Simulated scan of single mutants.
Amino acid sequence: MEQDQTAEKANPIKNEAWEWMKALLIAAALVFIIRWLIFAPFIVEGPSMEPNFYTGERLIVSKFIYKLSKPSRGEVIVFHATKDKDYIKRVIALPGETVKVEGDKVYVNNQVLDEPYLRQALDDAAKKGIPYNTRNFAEKTVPEGTIFVMGDNRSNSQDSRDIGFIKYEQIVGRADLIFWPFNKISLVRH
C-alpha cells in the first residue's frame, strides 16, 4: 500500500516535469522559427541612413516578406553587402528600369523620383544653399534579378553607386519596425 502511494506521489512530479520540458522545447522551437525564418533584429551602424535611421537604433527585419513578393521602390531593406557585413539601404530602382543621379535629383526611367522620406532634409539643405547629394551616378539599366539601392544620407552612403546592383539572393529582408530606443518605437516609412 505504501509503495502505491509513493508511486502516485512520484508520478505527478514526473508528469509536471515532463510538461515543463515540453513547454520549454516548444518555446525554443518557436523562437528558432521566428528568429531565423521570419524576423530578425538589426542594429543600424553608421550615418548612411540619416535622417531616418541613426546609429544604435534597433529594427525588426521581416525575412519572410520577400518569399511572397519582390522588393518595391521606397522600401528599406537589409542585405549582405559582404560575407561579414550587412547594410541597410532604400530600394530606388527595380529590374529593367534605368536609374541616374544628378545633384539632389534621382531619375528612374527619366522621371524625377518623388522621395517624401527625404523632403525635410532636401528642404533644409536648399535653405542653407548647399546640395544634399554630392555624388552623381551615370544612367544605367538595372539588370534582371537585381535592384539599385541608396542610403538616405546621399553624400555619406556606400550604396549601389559604389558596390553595384544588389542581387535578390543578397537580401535579408525588409525593415518594418524600429523597436529601440523606446522613444522611437514606430513602423518604418516605406
Rank of each mutant, 00 (worst) to 15 (best):
G173E: 05
V149P: 13
S160D: 13
R174I: 00
G151F: 07
R154W: 14
G164Y: 13
D159I: 06
R154C: 14
M150T: 03
K167P: 13
D162P: 03
D162M: 10
N156V: 10
G164E: 11
D152E: 08
G164P: 14
I166H: 03
E139D: 09
D162Q: 10
F148N: 02
Y168L: 07
Q158L: 12
Q170L: 04
T146P: 09
D159C: 05
V149T: 12
I163K: 04
A138E: 15
E139H: 01
K140A: 12
F137E: 05
I166A: 02
D162A: 07
R161E: 13
F148M: 01
V172N: 07
S155A: 14
G164K: 05
I166K: 01
T146L: 03
D162T: 08
D159K: 08
E169Y: 06
S157Y: 13
F148I: 00
Q170C: 10
I171K: 03
I147F: 06
K140R: 15
D152A: 05
G173W: 09
R135W: 05
D159A: 08
K140E: 12
Q158R: 13
G164L: 08
R161F: 04
V172H: 07
T146S: 11
T141A: 12
S157I: 11
Q158F: 06
V142C: 00
K140Y: 09
